[in-house]
Amino acid sequence: MSLPSARTFAGLVVAGIAAPAAVGLVAQPASAASVGTWDKVAQCESTGNWSISTGNGYYGGLQFSSATWAEFGGKRYAPQADRATKAQQIAVAEKVLATQGPGAWPACGKLAGLQRGGPAPEAPKAPAAPKAPAEGTGASAAGKAYSVVSGDTLGTIGSKLGIGWQKLYTDNRSVIGSDPNMIIPGQRLAYGSGSGGGSDAPAAPKPSNSSKSAGVLPVSGATVSARYHQSGGWAAGHHTGIDFAVSTGTPVKAAAAGTVVSSGRQGAYGNAVVIKHDDGRHTLSAHLSSATASAGERVLAGEQIGRSGNTGNSTGPHLHFEVRSSNSYGADVNPVTWLNGLGVSL
């Protein structure tokens, strides 16, 4: 069956699911499907694009309608499914599966082998492994464990625990898997003395130092399509930042440590994230398909803050990256010079 038909059938069935009051009574683990199975459903529904919004009334990798997304609690994560993370979309899909069953995705669910009562939606098959430090039988009896809940990211967990997200990921890679942006409710992450085999767990790196000594490019594997102060038809008469040519959905990272000032729709910039860094500079990452960082959140260099896109006043998928001396238009400074100061070269 063609892809448009699969999306349409799934949307029609899901939209007709019972009221959300009944959903809260469902024991979600009994209907859980594996992450791999949801990936197959998404591949069929949206060619695996978890940030897709084509204007057909259905959003995200699993093609939720607005009504279904709201009914099953999706708005606690984002206004529409395409602006939520993969893990958040799967969490909502589990509620749909528990109520409607695999028939909610009649074509793609069958093709992907979607069924009730599958394995828990977690890539590693042994979720009990990280419990060892908390019970004192692993690397250190002084270690602890944190249970992931809906809406968590490694960044927000690290802020709660006073640990850099990179160390949290390194210590729990066997639990999380290869993608640090994909954590699942119910996973237990070890932290504290002796966790993960690192000998200096209590001495988590200070975010205030990392932005002054190290940085990263905001996107990987990209080419520069427009340079700073390049002349053209921009409102300022020249380009106020750097454009990186990347496909929609490419992870966008914080170039240095700092605090998120704003996240969401910002006029001509489309979806954008502004970060105030420890050196006082502000960075703007614009035209995102989704902004996953939240205002007030502390982020470290290399931590994902969104995904590239083509929103706002944009002629094609790319990342517009600005560095400013203050959080205002016209305060732009040369981003290449700033990145060079962090040890990053273009």
Rank of each mutant, 00 (worst) to 15 (best):
E322F: 07
V344H: 07
F9L: 14
A254M: 07
A235E: 14
L168D: 01
S66H: 09
D279V: 02
S46V: 02
G233H: 07
S65Q: 12
A331E: 13
V274C: 08
N340G: 14
D278W: 10
E71K: 14
W105E: 07
S174D: 07
G296S: 08
K125D: 11
P127H: 06
S5F: 11
G296L: 04
D179A: 02
E45G: 09
V299T: 03
G264N: 03
T8W: 14
I183M: 03
R188N: 11
G198W: 09
E122M: 13
F244A: 00
L342V: 08
A214I: 10
Q80P: 01
G138R: 08
T283A: 00
T99A: 13
N310T: 10
T259W: 03
N313T: 14
H238P: 04
S225M: 00
Q89C: 00
S178M: 08
R173P: 00
S2H: 08
L111A: 15
R324S: 12
G118D: 02
S193C: 11
H282G: 01
G162S: 11
L339Q: 04
P20Y: 06
A107L: 15
L300T: 12
P133L: 02
S65R: 11
T137F: 07
K144L: 04
W105I: 04
A32F: 01
